[in-house]
């Protein structure tokens, strides 16, 4: 009984060490192949489109409602203290610095990261990765680098667009539900929000994009065990990406205070 428990703990620790080490190794492999930068052009463009353009609708909807919810939540106190002039600042500050990057990062991880792990994992179990290697093509250069570039760039752009959409969603909700004039709302944003508030979220988006790309590629390229293994890898990839997003956010928030 005890030995079985110890074996389970040891197995879990081994698995964790394998994945943490694997993610670090994947990051090092990517960085090594990025110096000097070289990526398959058509594969990179295809990924930019698939990762970015196709994620726009879901990001816009998520962002618009996130902005609206932020305004509804803060509306109670805004009304209570008659501080309508601070509504734009309150919503904008939290959206730009925290909620926007985190919400969009999590959506991106669920949609793009999971898809990436499933695709690479399926390529693993159907020998497509081995076929690439047999054709003298490095899977990291050919498959991972374009995905890494696409995820990093597109999550950053999605967060920028999502931030703006969230602010507009908040303005409309403030106008309709709280009766706060949109001009007052945007004036408080322009007056009180700094460029650093905006850039803070952008830096986080870059870091989240890197983390999601590296983690999803690691889990995809280490799949074992057929369809069941692919499902397990997708699950692990999404969970690990979510944890990474919050851990990175914690340290970056602390560092950028």
């Amino acid at each position: 009984m005890i030995s079985r428990g110890l074996a389970a703990i040891g197995g879990a620790f081994n698995g964790l060490a394998f994945d943490v080490g694997g993610v670090v190794m994947m990051l090092l492999k990517i960085l090594r192949r990025c110096l000097p930068p070289r990526a398959d052009g058509p594969e990179t463009w295809a990924n930019l489109y698939r990762v970015g353009v196709k994620s726009f609708p879901i990001v816009l909807v998520t962002a618009a409602f996130t902005g609206a919810i932020m305004v509804i939540q803060s509306g109670l106190y805004i009304k209570q203290y008659g501080a309508e002039g601070l509504l734009g600042w309150g919503a904008g500050y939290s959206i730009l610095r925290e909620v926007g990057p985190i919400m969009i990062g999590l959506m991106f991880s669920g949609r793009v990261g999971a898809n990436n792990t499933a695709e690479l994992g399926t390529m693993m179990v159907t020998d497509q990765i081995d076929a690439l290697r047999a054709l003298a093509i490095d899977p990291v250069s050919y498959l991972v680098i374009p995905r890494f570039i696409a995820m990093m760039i597109m999550l950053t752009l999605l967060v920028v667009v999502g931030d703006l959409t969230a602010l507009v969603g908040g303005a409309l909700t403030g106008e309709v539900l709280l009766g706060v004039d949109t001009r007052v709302y945007f004036e408080s944003i322009v007056t009180l929000i700094t460029l650093q508030d905006f850039l803070s979220g952008v830096y986080k988006a870059v870091a989240f994009g890197v983390a999601i790309a590296v983690i999803s590629c690691h889990f995809g390229l280490t799949v074992r065990g057929g369809a069941v293994g692919v499902g397990r890898a997708v699950n692990n990839s999404v969970v690990a990406s979510a944890i990474a997003i919050f851990v990175i956010d914690y340290f970056m928030t602390w560092a950028m205070q």
Binding site: M123, Q128, A131, R133, A134
Partner: peptide, 22 residues
């Protein structure tokens, strides 16, 4: 890795389960 890739230019391989790129 570089020399292995060069060696693989000399090899053609048909896989058991096709391994075609989807």
């Amino acid at each position: 890795a570089h020399k292995l890739a060069q060696l693989r230019f000399n090899i053609g391989m048909v896989f058991q389960n096709y391994a075609l790129f989807d």
